[in-house]
Design a protein around this nucleic acid. Structure first.
Lengths: 236, 236
DNA sequence: CTATGTCAACTAACATGTTAGTCAACCAGA
DNA sequence: TCTGGTTGACTAACATGTTAGTTGACATAG
């Protein structure tokens, strides 16, 4: 049993976040987990986190409670809490839920989009293009996220983005391990364009089909990953 | 300003629930809010709840935190927390999210259902029939919930039911005000049967169509309700 | 050497004390 | 009567002390 325990040093100071202490601690810890600076299986020690961030156990407890119901940490009552392992079951479920929400969103947006919204989407697409040409993959990753967030925003349902993010947190974490390649970025761009074309044409069915195809590219790549890095996945 | 404040007496004792204290307090409070024994706009007083349930402020605080991110209470930092008003925007959004999940579920289940699962569904349908004949509306309401929960269960995704419940809590609360009528129960039964038929035939498109029609019946009835009981809705 | 029972150390969960922010009632002035 | 500022009571948020349950190491028996 590789007794990986704790790595608290690389945890962003809470001064850079805003909100209540609990909120800031939550964001800091979530970032560390999603960016894999807290490795799956390692034990989260309240005391060390309190010390590192300079707060008491109350806000840390609340943060851990939130991370727990998001499935990012596993709490063993009266004992310990550790960073959850990757689980193909969880990832598959997250993908399913995410797809359900994305499909509903894109259909609605295709139906009742405005010209102003189309202009914003096109602006984002041009940005994506530029970033791919420049080979700026982190930047492209971010504009990709923005593209999807934008579509959800245009539904007019404010919680949608939050829910979608929550259900697919495990997927987000897994994506961190997928190295972006020029080829994949170009493909992604084309897939996005197909979605945009269908939204422009106000064709909900075509938009859903394009979105389904786009999202369908992800799972196979994650499955390949599970073979390469089995130590990050559940052993049971 | 109708200074409705608090009604703590009708709050189920936590002895009847299981889990941690925080979990039990959460369930007890959620039940009171969903069943409208805590009215929208009334102030939630930690002290009184602690006294009534015989616990300290810690588990109550955690319970309130959860209710807050579900949108069932509004917390004003350093001041007060009150039961949230009904909001047509929230209800519309909850309906949208719920539909997205139900449609994805029913399509998947129609695709890969087993014969054993069909048998379970049919058993539930016969139960619904009996309860309608007997005029047992509370019983029918419950078997209705079970019908939808069963479909989600058959997807094989365990969190799905939880997420669906969470996103549509506001809708659930609003439904409490809709008096069940014999006519509506019979209609519901027919709509369910149409869904079941499509699942039996392994026809995902038809299943989605039937589900969409079924879920579409709810919003108009809630909108009518908003006219009748405006005091429960946001005034802003 | 292996299996089992005991025990000590550590933890989350819970209780309670403290702080600081918010809101509404009240009062003074117009 | 109405407006604006002041104040005090009340609250959530945070800090800290306490309790009880779990885990894993170690010793002991087979």
């Amino acid at each position: 049993m590789t007794n990986t325990d704790i790595e608290v040093t690389n945890l962003r100071e809470i001064g850079t976040f805003e909100g209540s202490l609990a909120q800031r601690v939550y964001l800091s810890m979530q970032e560390a987990i999603l960016s894999l600076q807290f490795l799956p299986g390692s034990v989260v020690r309240k005391g060390l986190i309190c010390e590192k961030l300079g707060v008491s156990r109350s806000p840390v407890s609340e943060a851990i409670a939130r991370l727990s119901n998001e499935g990012l940490v596993d709490v063993v009552p009266q004992s310990a809490t550790r960073v959850s392992y990757f689980s193909m079951d969880d990832i598959r479920e997250g993908t399913f839920l995410r797809e359900a929400l994305e499909l509903a969103s894109v259909a609605k947006v295709a139906w009742d989009r405005t010209e102003d919204q189309m202009a914003q989407i096109n602006r984002n697409m041009r940005l994506q293009s530029l970033l791919v040409e420049d080979g700026d993959f982190p930047g492209f990753y971010q504009s990709d996220e923005e593209f999807h967030a934008m579509l959800m925003h245009f539904t007019g349902y404010p919680r949608l983005k939050t829910v979608a993010r929550m259900v697919s947190l495990q997927v987000t974490r897994a994506r961190m391990l997928l190295l972006p390649t020029p080829g994949r970025a170009t493909e992604t761009l084309d897939e996005h364009q197909a979605i945009v074309d269908a939204v422009r044409d106000q064709d909900p069915d075509a938009a859903q089909k394009a979105m389904r195809h786009h999202l369908g590219q992800l799972m196979p790549r994650i499955e390949a990953l599970a073979e390469k890095r089995p130590e990050l996945f559940q052993s049971r």
